[in-house]
Design a protein around this nucleic acid. Sequence first.
RNA 1: GGCGGCAUAGCCAAGUGGCUAAGGCGACGGAUUGCAAAUCCGUUAUCCCCGGUUCGAGUCCGGGUGCCGCCUCCA
Length: 474
Amino acid sequence: MSFRVFNSLTRRKEIFTPREPGRVRMYNCGPTVYNRQHIGNFRSFLFADLLRRWLEYLGLEVSQVMNITDVGHLTDDADMDGEDKIEAQARREKIDPQKIADGYAELFLADVRELGVLAPMAYPRATDHIPEMLEIINGLIEKGHAYEKAGNVYFDVTTFPRYGRLSGNKVEDLEAGKRVEVREDKRHPADFALWKADPKHLMKWDSRFGPDGFPGWHIECSAMARKLLGDELDIHTGGEDNVFPHHECEIAQSECFTGVTFARFWMHAKFLTVDGGKMSKSLGNVYTLDDVKERGYQPRALRYALMRGHYRQPLNFTWEILEESRAALEKLDDLAHRLRLSCAGTGAAADADEGSAAVDSAQKSFEDGLNDDLNMPQALASLFELRSTALEGSLGTAAAQRAMAFLKKANSVVGVIKLEEDTLDARVHELIAARVHARETQDWAASDRIRDELNELDVVVQDTPDGTIWRKKG
RNA sequence: GGCGGCAUAGCCAAGUGGCUAAGGCGACGGAUUGCAAAUCCGUUAUCCCCGGUUCGAGUCCGGGUGCCGCCUCCA
């Protein structure tokens, strides 16, 4: 079965194939680093990570790029008085805007690492690509797709008939829209800025348009994608809120400049809501990874919570859901643990191949699920079905080894399961041995006391017919 | 005002028109256990409403209702 993805551009599921056989060029819209990234941002980044991991599972080489936008967008594209987000934050913190951006970029990288996101080929920064942006801007002016007015450069949307194809917006409707304020130096209200001039701006670059310029919002992605991946991408991803205007504008800029299709597949993750609605500072529910950790949850619990639903379905976050995720994850850890034991012969069925068919069927279901536009719920369900099989004691050693190999492969995609054997220090080993001895002599008081002690050390003991087994919590 | 999405059990969440509607979390009853934990067995769904198409609809079509997101920096 081949990998089918929902292409936002055509609004249909299509079979994915890279332009160059065996190699995928993928660009993921990353963060604007004027603030700490929140769990909503992570949903989109984890989606990109899942996609990359699945493509690699399928044996494709993935050239993946995720931008870090470290020059702020105007808070209001149509209003020159609108404040740049990074500069606004810099004023609040009274330090240099580049330091703000660099600081938050570091936090972003640390967060994402903790969430188990695999590093892409590159995390390019906007401020390192000003010449590449200007090259495109100049080219667009030469080709008549852009025009300059007093140091500001705008893209002329009327020169690109496909403008609006991705988002389903019509230029006429945008014109009628109440939210787009008309700026008198724009030819058309929907024209968007490629380059802006403002002497008061702190981050600025010299160019033929004047000494006080800085890039408009969308141009950095076009420039960095082109530089690192070439003119034609296979996949471009982002959050659904990027569809318009950001991605629409990227397509216009890039395609008018290069004359070829910018990206063949566009994939967008649905929005994350918190407590049933958009998160907001006033509600105090803009959660960061630190909030998750402060409540005693491992980052992987958040990874699980944000990935267990389908990426195109709305997802709501609550602390109850995170708790549910933690509990489910514990079961998957336990599956890995049981499989290790079965591989070693403990509790394994007499026939070494007993249960092989169930393992194969779980693997097929896992692969079919993810091949169907990354159906993660189905993929996860297959792992729990494998667990049921393993717990029925119906796996032989050979089947268990096969199951373990599959689980490792599966975890290369989901990236949340604790596969390796926990290590215990000598003290814990002694306690476990002492408890086994106490039980043999039916000294229940001592046995229970040691069990409590082990619990304090986050070790859970379980007495099974095959003897006492243990595992670490969490 | 324009565009898009969603509605399946107490909660979360799959579901190419066709076998008894996956899976997870939780709850309850029983088994097991020195007590637990884990596990096993069982119970927990008029698929938002009303029409229509069809031999057959959770699934397709039309109309409601409710919720969410985008159109402004936003993943």
